[in-house]
Design a protein around this nucleic acid. Structure first.
Lengths: 132, 132
DNA sequence: CGTTATGCTTACGTCAACGTCAAGCAATCT
DNA sequence: AGATTGCTTGACGTTGACGTAAGCATAACG
């Protein structure tokens, strides 16, 4: 099991990102692959974090937001006050997410309503063809 | 009821946006306020659209995406093929939104789980207190 | 009638999140 | 050895969504 770690290429393939993206995330301290000489080796921890990063992005969180949240997922040797601040951030984000979730539900309903209205408009003005 | 229309300042106050933003949206053909001489007057239609624009943005849609979706909300004098394309776009977006909705649900559960784990960590390492 | 406020247009500035080169090691293939 | 391939580190370019500043017009106030 040498593949406890992955190279940058393997990571790119696995997560569908570019090398540039991974290096960029490292520069922003979102990832911290180990260095074998010159090269980066990404651990399970990096992979878990990347999963969370990509998910966070889909929900519209900034990388900076995500960086703060990531700490939550491996509270180890941190200071108590640090943990508390992280928790506070997390609770805020959770609130935002719940809010979004609810709004999204409304928006989905509205949009799907509009779509069926549109479909009816179409079927009435059918293309030369009468109704089936 | 002269306030069938609103000035740019009123709009800014009502929707918490800047004048720049409203003019920018107009330049991108997302809004089309009428002109009284030099000045812009925003109608109910503009307001409805702005509501949808801001909502769309919260869900991570680009202004261009939103511009296409907006057409759906007032299919009037359009061409049939144009309506069909709009509907196609809308269905795609609806799919995305449903996907996001589901993912968001998962993420909410995970995050809230992590938060309670974090809280327990805190309560065990209570301030200066040894384990209970 | 001067000035203060508001609005308009035009144009350049900014910030996030990368993309896209350029230039240089290092290992590997021929 | 030479060439190729993969990875590295800068450094500058790009796109979307505005911010900001300059300059002029119009309107309102005193």
């Amino acid at each position: 099991m040498t593949d406890d770690v992955m190279t940058i290429r393997e990571m790119c393939a696995a997560y569908d990102v570019t090398p540039r993206t991974l290096r960029f995330y490292e520069s922003k301290e979102l990832l911290s692959p180990i260095r074998k000489g010159q090269k980066r080796l990404f651990t399970r921890r990096d992979r878990a974090r990347l999963t969370l990063i990509l998910r966070g992005k889909r929900f519209g969180f900034s990388l900076e937001d995500i960086r703060q949240l990531l700490d939550l997922y491996h509270l180890g040797d941190q200071q108590r006050t640090q943990i508390e601040r992280t928790l506070a951030v997390a609770r805020e984000r959770l609130q935002e997410m719940r809010q979004k979730h609810a709004e999204l539900e409304t928006a989905i309903e509205e949009l799907s309503h509009q779509i069926s209205t549109g479909e009816q408009t179409l079927s009435k003005t059918a293309t030369g063809q009468p109704d089936t």
